[in-house]
Design a protein around this nucleic acid. Structure first.
Lengths: 344, 344
DNA sequence: TTGTACGCGTTATCAT
DNA sequence: ATGATAACGCGTACAA
């Protein structure tokens, strides 16, 4: 079972042209006679020629490969993001070499090594184990999404504005106190803006505020016990008070709603809840959750646009590396659903 | 801002060795003197050499690239599958070029074209727009996961056995009738086995059985209205009867549970429900859903094992293409949760 | 319009 | 243990 590899040489022999002409047939067809084209086209289908992009790459340097490093794929947020990035394939013509870091610094590093070895033209980094400083020294264009981004181009949601909007909504719903549940985030994390947003509105509102800042986990079963104790604390300390609760993300908000439902069979009037992300789960809840929509599609598109520009500059030998950094902020949007509005 | 490309030639010049020796340093270090190795190693870090896998590929033919084509990534099932496949990267040393078909035949086809052009050594196909016959003629190893697979190697869950188990469980719970909700599947689809499993057990049990076979959709909001009318039909025709309902997948089962909860605020004793997949959502439900666990991890591992074997045979010029087809079946497992067992 | 000759960075095959 | 040389498949000046 021999592998038959048909190359330009074979096509050349078969048509009487030189390899150069065959090459031109693919890259500059307009410089050939109609007749020559037909002859070559015929030969191509007769011998079943298949293009070899790797040989092409070695000759002209453009791999058309972009690397993506994701932290994981069980969180729909990352899966969605990856999906949207992959969908830019036809728009820009890049292929994606994907690596799943699983929050392991060594894996992320090894992914980067491979990408450099395969001469990827650029990398989209969604995982967060490597510092942006490290990323900035790779020698190829990098764009990060929703993570620490001091030294590289990036795209982030408008977390601060989103936090402002979420909490303002709670205030305007007539809440008598404000609560924020979140991880104890690092200030360099874009999501830290959500905490800032909360504090800002809480201060201006003059309402009593309480923050529960502690690591909750990423999965339902991990979050549940922690949320249980937070809920217990709330029930104990603030009974009867109309509470506006801003939860860091929809999964956590969903857990909270479920716990409350489990307890009361319905959502009591003194609980108003807002999540963040607009992930599927927020819609799938028995009581759909009010949340801040992140425009993942636009984030992915913007990231690719940024990356493509840099990659283009690089292949054209422009000074891409010392261009000023760009940190794009993508607008969020409040989606009012049933956890902040009671049906009559 | 010039790009400095350091090659074997530079290392050779710098160390006084030939390119051949440099190559050997990387591929057969044991054939060099300790001293030579040290000298080369030194040169490498001094000039900052970075390997170029593409040149290597052109010379030896092994890209170490495997293609993956997924139908989409909003369904956690596919995202999980992709995640598990990506995680075999270190085990076998392959890199993954990922394409998102989005159920578009043209996109799937174009993905295949690209993979052939990039000389991927094999492809894992999860999307289902291309027939297995088409896939079998690509000239490179292919393994499909949970889809039509007549002409190619494949990995599937034991859908039939899963169906049997699910429905048997309902019977043993004392249900007075059996209901199956599923899409009107094609017989070549592996998931058709779930329907067969239902019919088989239903027939043997002698219980009255009812099938709702109609396309439900893949997303919560798409499924909801359809499930609503099915539930209405059930409530109208089988009130008071203890119903054992086997739903085709967890998302649909989740919708059903939510609709029932919305109506009764609890799950009435005459509703016993079993889903399929063991997707996250089945655990995240207010009432955790009894389901059939699919061992996605093992499916992904098995798929890669199958593919790797074929790819190896091919590079060794063995007759991989005419080896007998293998269709691996992965065991499923019943997970009894709260939708089939009531707490006292 | 078409061809010649060389380069891309590495590996494989003989030699020494 | 190390080297010389020819592939690998294609692109591109430069020539004709």
């Amino acid at each position: 079972m021999k592998e038959k590899k048909v190359t330009f040489a074979d096509l050349a022999k078969r048509t009487g042209f030189s390899k150069t002409t065959i090459s031109r047939y693919f890259n500059h067809p307009d410089t050939l006679t109609e007749e020559s084209r037909v002859r070559i086209a015929g030969a191509i289908r007769e011998v079943g020629y298949k293009e070899n992009k790797l040989a092409k790459v070695l000759a002209n340097g453009r791999t058309e490969i972009v690397g993506i490093i994701v932290p994981n794929l069980h969180m729909h947020y990352y899966a969605d993001l990856l999906s949207c990035v992959l969908n830019t394939a036809e728009k820009h013509g890049y292929k994606f070499l994907v690596f799943n870091g699983e929050n392991d610094k060594e894996r992320d590093r090894s992914a980067i090594r491979e990408l450099l070895a395969y001469k990827a033209e650029g990398i989209i980094v969604i995982s967060h184990t490597c510092t942006s400083e490290e990323l900035s020294q790779l020698g190829i264009p990098v764009v990060t999404i929703e993570r620490e981004d001091r030294y590289v181009n990036s795209v982030n949601s408008d977390n601060y504005e989103g936090g402002i909007t979420a909490v303002s909504h709670l205030v305007s719903c007539g809440c008598e106190m404000l609560i924020h549940i979140n991880a104890d985030l690092n200030k360099v994390s874009p999501a830290y803006g959500r905490i800032m947003g909360f504090r800002n509105v809480a201060a201006k509102s003059g309402l009593p505020a309480k923050e529960y800042l502690t690591y909750l986990g990423n999965e339902y079963l991990e979050i549940k016990p922690k949320m249980e104790s937070i809920l217990a604390d709330i029930e104990k300390n603030y009974p009867g008070v109309k509470k506006g609760i801003f939860v860091s993300n929809d999964t956590a908000a969903y857990v909270l709603v479920n716990l409350i439902l489990k307890r009361y069979k319905y959502l009591p009037d003194d609980y108003l809840i807002v999540g963040f992300d607009d992930s599927l789960i927020s819609r799938e809840s028995v009581i759909p959750i009010t949340t801040i929509h992140q425009d993942i599609r636009t984030m992915a598109d913007t990231a690719m646009d940024l990356l493509v520009r840099q990659m283009k500059d690089r292949t054209e030998n422009k000074d891409w590396a010392s261009a000023p950094l760009e940190h794009r902020i993508i607008k969020t949007e409040l989606l009012v659903r049933e956890t902040t509005i009671r049906e009559p």
